[in-house]
Design a protein around this nucleic acid. Structure first.
Length: 475
RNA sequence: GGCGACGUAGCCAAGUGGUAAGGCAGAGGUCUGCAAAACCUUCAUCGGCGGUUCGAUUCCGCCCGUCGCCUCCA
């Protein structure tokens, strides 16, 4: 079985078969760097990371492009207000994005093109559209001529009529320069004092949608395999990308469109506008573990379903991570036999079944929640076997490989290890307490032993007694 | 108003035409000097009403509820 993804355009599952066999070209819409990205945004980026990782495992080559939108109305407004250049305005937010991305263990894309670096390509694309009669100039701005693209609306299912009717009065009522309210800006003229580029189209700055088309085509070719984003990008962003790209090239722009659902909080979409958002550093400052945040975003709900964020689910994710980590530690510390253990075959069966179920679930539209269900079943069974029997080094290796392969997608162990590298250093006082407790236990002085354990607990150290002696960790 | 999605145990949720994965929380046990970890047992009939079917949570219709999109929000 191979990977099938839900395609927004055809509303069904489609087999991922790259145009060039073995080489997947993936484009994911990145952040607009006007502000700190919140965890709602990261739900999409984490989903895309899971996709990326699964593709990395299953195809010879993946080229992943994520754009950074570093010019838009908000950025221009802020830059003007702060007296900054665009670069000065966006640099901190780009850096913050990468910080948070690393905190959550998201693999870097191969390219992070910035809109401001592709002005020439955007201009060329607009000119190409003009040549084909799909774009027109008006009052110094350039617009896409929707009437020239009859297929418009297929992705979002929004009819032209619906747009014109434009409920909620959200269609730009003040924009008189367009021939049709449905037309969208490819290039926007600016006032003489404002930030802009001198181009054959006139002085101005690019519209939002054109950047993705230009950068995608430049870096990945005119037809790409997979294009991702949040559902809120379906309309108008991706609808417009299809229109302008296909009108220019006459070719299919994207073979599979994959969109992730929103993160909701208190029953509403998390968003900047509503002010109900949390950022990664904010969560971490409140004590959330990055691995738990990642687990919650990636594995607690299927990517096409809204996911509710709250303290309780985050705690559940924390415990789930802890369970996985405890098992990994247990397996690593396992005492194994040289010869074949009597439980080896059982372990291999458990591993085999978990692996198959995991892969099937992942291939079925990246159902990581279901895949993890299979992993937890295997954990329980393996724990039971290890409680009762000894196994050989080979069986242990099979378990370790399973965990490694699962985490190659889940991506939490490296985050846990980062935490540990920081936390697994004992102060003088702490190691002295541990030493004293070990001595107390050897002497059978349980009262002292318990007192020392309580003292260590208050230092943030959990002590567990095992047949091999006491073991400590910082939960 | 238009388009679409969702509604499964206290919470987060997966899933299937034949009587419901998993995680968290709760209860009771085993193990342990006591704990912890681990394991065992226990905890739902799938929003409501109809219909199709031998049989529906899963298909269809209606209703109720929630949410998203409808020109720049992942």
């Amino acid at each position: 079985m191979s990977l099938r993804l839900h395609d927004t355009l055809t509303k069904g599952l489609v087999e991922v078969e790259p145009l060039q066999p073995g080489h997947v070209r993936l484009y994911t819409c990145g952040p607009t760097v006007w502000n700190r990205v919140h965890i709602g945004n990261f739900r999409t980026f984490v989903f895309e990371d899971v996709l990326r990782r699964w593709l990395d495992r299953n195809f010879d080559r993946v080229t992943h492009v994520m754009n950074l939108t570093d010019v838009d109305d908000r950025i221009l407004r802020n830059a003007k207000e702060h007296g900054n250049t665009l670069d000065e305005e966006t640099a901190p937010w780009i850096a913050a994005f990468h910080d948070d991305r690393e905190t959550l263990g998201i693999r870097p894309a191969h390219h992070y093109p910035r809109a401001t670096e592709y002005i020439d390509q955007m201009v060329a694309l607009v000119q190409r559209l003009e040549d084909r009669g799909a774009a027109y100039s008006s009052s110094g701005s350039e617009y896409f001529h929707i009437a020239a693209f009859p297929q418009y609306g297929r992705l979002s299912g929004i009819s032209a009529e619906g747009l014109v009717a434009g409920a909620g009065g959200r269609v730009d009522a003040d924009d008189y320069t367009k021939e049709d309210v449905r037309d969208f800006a490819l290039w926007k003229a600016v006032d003489p004092g404002d930030i802009g580029w001198e181009t054959p189209l006139g002085r101005g700055h690019p519209g939002w949608h054109i950047e993705c088309s230009a950068m995608s085509m430049t870096l990945l070719g005119e037809t790409i395999d997979i294009h991702c984003g949040g559902v809120d990008n379906i309309f108008p962003h991706h609808e417009n990308e299809i229109a302008q790209s296909e009108a220019a090239t006459g070719r299919q722009f994207v073979r599979v469109w994959a969109h992730s659902a929103h993160l909701v909080i208190g029953g509403e979409k998390m968003s900047k506008r509503l002010g109900n958002f949390m950022t990664v550093p904010e969560l971490v400052a409140e004590g959330a573990r990055p691995a738990a945040v990642r687990f919650m975003l990636a594995a607690s709900a299927h990517y096409r379903k809204q996911l509710s964020f709250a303290d309780e689910p985050l705690r559940a994710a924390t415990e789930a991570v802890e369970r996985l980590v405890a098992f990994r530690d247990r397996v690593a510390a396992l005492e194994v036999t040289d010869e074949e253990g009597d439980a080896d075959e059982l372990v291999r069966t458990v591993v085999r079944q978990a692996r198959m179920a995991f892969e099937d679930a992942m291939n079925d539209d990246l159902n990581l929640p279901e895949a993890m269900g299979a992993v937890f079943v295997a954990l329980r069974e393996a724990n039971r076997i290890l409680d009762e029997s000894t196994v050989s080094g080979d069986a242990r290796t099979a378990l370790q490989h399973l965990l490694a392969d699962v985490d190659d997608v889940l991506g939490i162990f490296p985050l846990v290890d980062v935490e540990r590298a920081v936390k697994d250093v004992l102060t003088h006082h702490e190691s002295e307490l541990l030493r004293q407790r070990e001595a107390a236990r050897a002497a059978g002085d349980w009262a002292l032993s318990d007192r020392l354990r309580r003292e260590l607990t208050s230092c943030g150290i959990a002590v567990e007694d095992t047949p091999q002696g006491q073991r400590w960790r910082r939960p």
